[in-house]
Nucleic acid binder design. Structure first.
Length: 906
RNA sequence: GGGCGAUUGGCUCAGCUGGUUAGAGCGCACGGUUCACAUCCGUGAGGUCACUGGUUCGAAUCCAGUAUCGCCCACCA
């Protein structure tokens, strides 16, 4: 670390861009991010395994939000002395990585094909080495206190082994199998994709109606008899193996059992009845293409139809398509339609809204494709995963996502885990020439075929790799050493909170639950915290194409990571989207600035010499400490309940509206009093500094940089205030102090009174700089005592030369009511007139209010509401009546004033 | 076709298990050159809590329905 001078003051302006990296460096050097070598005695576990960002990705606001939420929780628990681990990682993201590398290869004049598997993978690893640290670097800039010594990668050795072992166990348990099924195929990525990666949306299409001529006895088409089918995909016609109608559809009843002839190639198609067909749709007759449509596949299976594959892996028509063999699917569509039109068999076409699935990665229209694939049998896994949530062993926040989770789990399909890509974990299955399958978790592969004992040399490994989410699903424990029972696994598993966007609840959270329970017999985390999407100010999703993307790092450069963190976290609510506006960002920046300046004042106000504190604490001192106690309690509770916006808001309000607005101002007055002794000054300053220290501790998880920077100076200036704790990141979370209800109540009245005086001055258009004489007649003995103690504050903060009269002193007509008694302001006749009028209005209002409460108390409310609530209303009525009595009393008194009966208005 | 969520001052959002006069930030109006901060300070205006009905002594809050917006799931070619 560079040696810097050690200033005892803070710079006039907080320069986040300069301070933040320096502070981060200090944290790194302190080792604060890494858990102690052994678990501290009695410490509770708090562990978050970071959702690994894609290795190829640039940091976006979603990552930033995740990092901030997790960092706040980790810092909080670290300060509490819990056994804390936050483990970072990156995901190898098969398809996404391939996508990016393909582009790079294209620039280099190469391609996947030109390189071949081996050289391609070498190139990929080189690419990984170049980009792997990128996202971590960005997280460091955000202030994320991740334990970088435990950095993991879903393609590292540990993950690879976990993948093999998990798959072997699934295979042995009969939960992994290989079979033929219709899967989603992306013709551009040339791989299977999961249901989740197949993004469906309404699109405009065309519905064609086509005549299929009935077959005559010799199999030739009858030119005069036909059945008209409706289709949106004429090009799949070559894969038709039947025509289906509804069993109860009388229009076609006579045709069921006959055959139609497929145009172009003359295949004979049985006309079958199937309940799945909608009579109302199209013509009520549908061509059945089992190899290229999920519905038709089911029909085909029910009726034992042949399944004819007409597309190759790039969705070009195969030899099955006769004259159209080799055509692209969309060219073929046009060609088929044109040919049918020419032959007169195209009956009609009309525009049609339909749902089209596109590849999540490349937006290419997904093609259902019949192929032999590896599957995970998910039903039994899903059962357990649902039970965990139902029985509260894992809690989902917000709770309503439980329904979404259950619904998905209940309707889950088997998971097609194979991908026809190169970059990823290769499925550890070997085939022998006799068709036997051997699955092993041994990296080198099996010695021999499990079934027939053929030697390894004759076995051939599966070329498919796993869906990226398979290794991601093992993440919470593969990162801790599983399948070995490592000390880390023992100490840190299961983890505490899984924080991620609700948009990957199924992709990832659901799979971690299923695989976690299967592999480790325990839920991988206790709480799933789902955050929403960060949108632009108009509620639009951010996207590169819209050009409305906010780059977190740019924001950090401009206003600092703390400010961004404040903006994002104060707007977050689990499960809900938020809009990020300039105003919110400025709010964050302003708050760091406010803190900085408050601290700057505190540091500069330190009296010299510092001596033994002396004297009793003032009302503001007692008040602020009591308030800090309450805020500490609330902030702690908010954090325990994962209400982060609540936590930030609580401390923000306290710091700004109570500490800065009132206590700081009150303390200034005490520190500047001529008659204050050094001991008293020391005491007041200590209160100032200690409460500031309390605020810094409370705020550190939310605004780690600015609080740490202020802390450093505070510690240098007065280590007693920081209790000798040099670094805030490892300082103790504050304990809840004692409350002082009397002080809180009294100070509240002092504040109200001050406000009322300011308000009155403004209404009377008194110049802000002008000091006026004000006499306050205390409303009660208590108020009298409070007034005498608070006189300097009320005076100074309202620019009043204050005189305090005891209760019962005469109250002139132009006195104004305040929380502590009547205030008589030195005034001109016009001003007096104004105050008198003002009080007429007040009197009317008061009378109305009293009427309302009386009516309420006369109603059933009095007998049916809980006694406590009724009592509150009674108390309120008494206070209103007392105030009214005070007003009346005042009016009864001649202007000269004289003593009268005391009334307790306080 | 199912399901979920939202609807609170001009804008963005808080309002827990129903309980006084519904809060905040931004914006707006007025005022502020003193020793933390104009990235600030002070004062103020502004809300039939989407609508209809119900439960209740009492509803922004609970229930039912309606409307609008958004999202998720789904096998009408």
């Amino acid at each position: 670390m560079t040696t810097t001078s050690a200033p005892r003051e803070l710079a006039p302006r907080y320069d986040a861009a300069a301070v933040e990296p320096r502070i981060y460096q200090r944290w790194m050097e302190s080792g604060a991010f890494t858990p102690a070598p052994t678990k501290p005695e009695g410490a509770e576990r708090f562990v978050i395994i970071q959702p690994p960002p894609n290795v190829t990705g640039a940091l976006h606001l979603g990552h930033a939000l995740t990092a901030f939420v997790e960092d706040i929780l980790i810092r909080y628990h670290r300060m509490r002395g819990d056994d804390t681990l936050w483990l970072p990682g990156v995901d190898h993201a098969s398809i996404a990585a391939q996508f990016v590398l393909d582009r790079i290869l294209a620039e280099e004049g190469e391609s996947r094909q030109s390189l071949g598997r081996e050289r391609y993978l070498e190139r990929m690893w080189r690419f990984m080495d170049e980009t792997r640290d990128f996202i971590g670097e960005q997280h460091r800039r955000l202030g994320a206190s991740l334990d970088w010594t435990r950095m993991r990668f879903t393609m590292d050795e540990g993950s690879a082994r976990a993948v093999r072992v998990a798959f072997k166990r699934l295979w042995d348990a009969g939960l992994a199998y290989r079979g033929e099924a219709l899967v989603n195929w992306c013709p551009r990525c040339r791989t299977t994709i999961s249901d989740l990666e197949n993004i469906k949306a309404e699109e405009a299409g065309t519905l064609w109606t086509i005549r299929y001529h009935l077959a005559r006895a010799d199999g030739s088409p009858d030119p005069d008899a036909w059945i008209t089918v409706a289709t949106t995909r004429p090009e799949t016609l070559f894969g038709d193996t039947a025509v289906a109608v509804h069993p109860d559809d009388e229009r076609y009843a006579s045709l069921v059992g006959r055959e139609a002839v497929l145009p172009f190639i003359g295949r004979r198609l049985p006309i079958i009845a199937d309940g799945h067909v909608e009579r109302e749709f199209g013509t009520g007759a549908v061509k059945v293409t089992p190899a290229h449509d999920f519905d038709d596949y089911e029909i085909g299976r029910r009726h034992g139809l042949p399944m004819v594959n007409v597309f190759d892996e790039e969705a070009r028509l195969t030899e099955e398509a006769g004259p159209f063999a080799g055509w692209d699917r969309y060219d073929a569509r046009k060609g088929v339609v044109a040919a049918l039109a020419e032959s007169g068999d195209l009956e009609g076409e009309r525009p049609h809204q339909m749902v089209i699935g596109r590849c999540d990665r490349c937006r290419t229209v997904v093609e259902p494709r019949l192929s032999v694939q590896w599957f995970i049998r998910t039903k039994p896994l899903a059962e357990r995963a649902m039970a965990s949530v139902r029985e509260r062993r894992t809690r989902i926040m917000p709770a309503h996502f439980e329904k979404v989770y259950n619904h998905w789990m209940e309707n889950i399909h088997d998971w097609a885990v194979g991908r026809q890509l190169w970059w990823g974990h290769r499925i550890p299955a070997w085939y022998c020439p006799d068709g036997h399958i051997t699955v092993t978790d041994v990296e080198a592969g099996p010695d021999a075929c499990d079934e027939c004992g053929r030697p390894a040399a004759e076995l051939r490994q599966e070329t498919d790799i796993f869906d990226t989410w398979f290794s991601s699903g093992l993440w919470p424990f593969s990162t801790l050493g599983w399948p070995d029972r490592t000390p880390d696994l023992e100490r840190f598993y299961p983890t505490s909170v899984m924080e991620t966007g609700y948009d990957i609840l199924f992709f990832w959270v659901a799979r971690m639950m299923m695989l976690g329970l299967f592999c480790t017999d325990v839920e991988p985390f206790h709480t799933v915290y789902l955050h929403g999407i960060v949108r632009d100010p108009y509620g639009q999703k951010m996207s590169k194409t819209k050009g409305n993307v906010v780059d977190p790092l740019q924001v950090v450069e401009e206003i600092g990571a703390d400010a961004l963190r404040f903006a994002l976290v104060s707007g977050t609510s689990p499960g809900s989207d938020q809009r990020l506006t300039q105003a919110r960002l400025e709010g964050g920046r302003n708050f760091t600035n406010k803190l900085w300046n408050a601290a700057r004042f505190v540091l500069s106000a330190r009296p010299e010499p510092m001596v033994e504190p002396a004297g009793e604490p003032t009302l503001p001192e007692r008040w602020i400490r009591s308030r800090l106690a309450e805020v500490t309690e609330r902030a702690t509770r908010d954090l325990d309940e994962l209400d982060l916006a609540g936590y930030v808001g609580t401390v923000y309000d306290f710091a700004w509206s109570e500490y800065c607005d009132w206590f700081l101002e009150a303390a200034k007055i005490d520190l500047r009093r001529q008659d204050a002794s050094p001991g008293e000054r020391t005491r007041v300053w200590r209160s100032l500094a200690e409460v500031l220290a309390g605020v810094l501790r409370l705020l550190h998880p939310a605004l780690p940089f600015v609080t740490e920077e202020i802390w450093a100076t505070l510690h240098r200036v007065d280590p007693e205030v920081t209790r000798g704790e040099e670094l805030l990141i490892t300082a103790a979370w504050p304990a809840v102090g004692a409350r002082d209800a009397a002080a809180e109540e009294a100070m509240e009245r002092v504040i109200s009174t001050t406000r009322e005086l300011r308000n009155l001055r403004q209404e009377l258009e008194i110049q802000p700089a002008e000091w006026r004489a004000v006499t306050i007649v205390a409303g009660s003995a208590t108020a009298d005592a409070v007034l005498r103690e608070a006189e300097p504050y009320i005076s100074d903060l309202s620019r009043s030369k204050l005189t305090i009269n005891p209760p019962g002193t005469g109250i002139p007509e132009h006195a104004a009511g305040t929380a502590l008694g009547f205030a008589v302001i030195e005034a001109s006749d016009a001003e007096r007139r104004y105050v008198v009028d003002r009080h007429e209005r007040e009197r009317t209002e008061l009378t109305e209010q009293i009427e309302r409460v009386r009516a309420l108390l006369a109603s059933e409310f009095a007998t049916k509401a809980p006694p406590q609530v009724v009592q509150r209303e009674r108390d309120r009525l008494a206070e209103l009546e007392a105030r009214l009595a005070g007003l009346d009393e005042k009016r009864a008194i001649p202007r000269s004033g004289y003593s009268s009966r005391a009334t307790d208005r306080c």
